[in-house]
Design a protein around this nucleic acid. Structure first.
Lengths: 189, 189
DNA sequence: GTCTATAATGAGATAGAC
DNA sequence: GTCTATCTCATTATAGAC
């Protein structure tokens, strides 16, 4: 892989993974340094403003991956319902597997910071909005009227987010699959 | 109010509020002690096992309040869709107000602890399951077949949870209201 | 760009007096 | 049941050498 090529990227990737799974307040900088294998002196060189700055870049990095996954499915599958169902199934499959559940959600860090850091809250908000837009655009392309598509883009994002929370806590992809099952009722064009 | 009547209850209530809004790892025991006004020496007397034990009781306390709010609406409003919409509206209204958004969700602490504490994860899971059951039972009473009702009970809970996350991050009850708007499409009996 | 050392603070937790 | 004092540890962050 592209390991060690870039210390800064390396730190961001590791931080993103840890913040996503263990939380912003639940993850220490030492832990990030240790797990990334990045040189110990380098953190405050690359991120002079400290933890919050690192988290900001980590959130954007996570957001990119999440958006990219959604985008891929929406592009490859023509029918919007099928595409959305396949997105949900791909997330459910990760949760059912033994892998660490990464690149799925920023909700933990969003909930942790929405009251304590406007910088991080806004970063999360931006990602949520992007996701909504991806869904809305797909629906519009499929012939749905704009007003409805915008509303449903938001609703779909919210449902998937709620489904992820339930699936993680229940350690099963099934709560997400129940969400997928309801999509046809919702997306009547 | 019933202030100071019971130090232990007082600690649990304050902890519940802080854990819910600032998170388990984001809230220190000192902060709980200070805000509760409880005697400083009393924490480890009432909760010998420390923070996790306090959190466990705080989660159950929060869960009781959340369930009670849902139950009240479901009992007072006969039509299931109207009842669920009014639950969602009540949450949206709190988020739109200037009050601290309490007694709405345990998702933050659920996401923080699902990997690090099976005790707390199970407590959250229990609350989620109770909420699902409340919705399912209402749907069954309204004539829906059992299988569908069970599935939709879960889906409704998930949707509301996702809606709360979005509404908190966006500092607006509207994402939740979009969820409410879709309920009629979903709950066809 | 990276290293080591360390400051400064706050965390969770414990012991023993009262 | 509560108080005070304290322990230990981890945290974020900084300073200065290389």
């Amino acid at each position: 892989m592209n390991n060690k090529i870039n210390t800064k990227e390396n730190l961001i990737e590791t931080a993103a993974k840890l913040f996503e799974t263990k939380g912003y307040y639940g993850t220490g900088l030492n832990e990030i340094l240790a797990e990334s294998g990045a040189p110990k002196g380098s953190l405050y060189y690359h991120f002079p403003k400290g933890k919050e700055q690192l988290a900001l870049e980590a959130i954007y990095s996570e957001g990119k991956k999440i958006k990219s996954n959604v985008q891929t499915h929406l592009q490859n599958i023509e029918h919007p319902i099928e595409a959305i169902v396949s997105i949900i199934e791909s997330i459910a499959a990760v949760i059912d597997s033994d892998e660490k559940s990464e690149d799925m959600t920023i909700s933990l860090i969003a909930l942790e910071t929405y009251l304590t850091s406007d910088i991080l809250r806004n970063a999360c908000l931006e990602i949520y909005t992007s996701l909504e837009n991806l869904y809305s655009e797909k629906l519009i392309k499929s012939g749905m009227n704009k007003e409805n598509a915008i509303k449903l883009g938001c609703v779909i994002s919210e449902m998937i987010e709620g489904g992820i929370v339930y699936s993680l806590v229940k350690k099963s992809g099934n709560p997400l699959r129940l969400i997928a099952e309801q999509m046809p009722k919702l997306l009547i064009i």
